[in-house]
Every structure is written in C-alpha cells, then in structure tokens.
C-alpha cells in the first residue's frame, strides 16, 4: 500500500469518525482499487464530500444548538429589582430583556432599560428605568411635568404623579432615565445621566 493510500485512509477515518451511515466506509473500501497518487487524492476528496453530506443531520443539530445558545444569551428573563417602575412593572414581575440587539440598533427615548447605576456610596445597583433624554436633549421640570427640549411630555405611565427635577443638558453618549414611579424611584434625578456602557439590556415585554 502506498503512502498516499495510508494518508487517505487516515484522513477519511478522521472525517468519518462516529458516522453511522455506510457510505463513507463504502468509499474507503474502494481505495484498494485506486492506483496512482493523483487518483487516490481525488478519490479521497470525493470521500470527504460524502462524509460532509452524511453529516447533514449532525450539522443541522449543531447549527440549531448555536442559534439556541445565542438566543438564550441575548434574551433573558429577569425579575424586576425595585418598585421604581411601578405600576408599569412591579417588584418581582418578570420581564423579557434583550441584552444584545440594542447594542446594534441603539437605544431611543421611551425605551425601558436595565441599567447599572452608582448608589453614591461607591457601590452599584441594578435598576430598570425609562429613557427620557438622549445625548443633546435638555430636560427640565415645570409644574410637576417633565419637559424635553422645552416641550412638556405626555406620560400616561406615571398615572398622574408629579415630577420634580433639576434642569440638565444630557451629555453625548449618555441617557437620562426616570422610573415611572416618580415618588420613590432613584434615577437620573439623583445620579445624573448614565453612560451607554452601563446599560445591560432593553426590556421587551
């Protein structure tokens, strides 16, 4: 048996390891008939193609597992950590959070986001808040209502509670967030606009 035959056998046995279909073995069995290095290489290349086709089921399973893993990493269900968004989202409610696609599509005004925010004592806490202003917006409060760039916002989700805040211009690359529960939420009124790097996800449901 030539060196080409030995190499071909080794390559194909690796390609066919664990295969349960007979076709790869059928191609290997014919190798004894093939003479000439070039012909052996050609026959082996065809055997690899057969091995690839045989593993279609395995490939589909692998692809499905990859898609599932990415989906699981992207979309997570997490409990609401505080009453800052009550009554829209109460403590212990479960929210579906998208942790990936917002990084591609960006975050806009009105999005509800999961945010890591400083407590003010050197620690961090995770909060869920609504984006009120993006970079360049001016936020102010008059008569208990939030104004963005001088226009009062319609905010049915606050259910009539009043909002007090200090006027601020949101720096580029940061978000000004408020909890829907304006009476108790700790939000940008306390810790200021937060950089996009502190955003962990966007609440979808």
């Amino acid at each position: 048996m030539s060196a080409a035959h030995r190499l071909a056998r080794r390559v194909l046995s690796v390609a066919l390891a664990g295969s349960r279909s007979p076709w790869g073995a059928a191609v290997v069995a014919e190798l004894d008939q093939v003479t000439g290095t070039w012909a052996v290489l050609r026959w082996t290349a065809g055997g690899l193609r057969v091995a690839w086709r045989e593993r279609r089921g395995v490939r589909l399973t692998t692809a499905a597992a990859l898609v599932a893993a990415v989906a699981l990493a992207t979309f997570t269900v997490r409990p609401i950590p505080s009453g800052a968004m009550a009554p829209t989202l109460g403590i212990g409610d479960h929210a579906l959070v998208d942790r990936l696609t917002f990084r591609l599509t960006g975050i806009d005004r009105g999005d509800v986001i999961v945010l890591r925010a400083p407590t003010g004592t050197g620690d961090w806490f995770t909060t869920v808040d609504r984006v009120i202003g993006v970079g360049g917006d001016t936020i102010s409060c008059t008569g208990g209502r939030v104004h963005r760039n001088g226009t009062p916002l319609e905010e049915p989700y606050t259910h009539g509670t009043t909002t007090d805040c200090s006027p601020v211009t949101v720096p580029a690359g940061t978000f000004y967030v408020l909890g829907d529960n304006r009476d108790s939420a700790r939000d940008s009124r306390h810790y200021g606009p937060q950089p996009a790097a502190n955003v962990d996800g966007r609440v979808i449901l």
């Binding site: 076709w23 191609v27 050609r42 026959w43 065809g46 055997g47 193609r49 057969v50």
Partner: peptide, 9 residues
C-alpha cells in the same frame, strides 16, 4: 469522481 458518484448513489 467519487465526490459526484456517491452522492448520486
């Protein structure tokens, strides 16, 4: 070639 023949078979 084997890569054409065997998929047909």
């Amino acid at each position: 070639a084997s890569g054409s023949l065997y998929p047909i078979l």
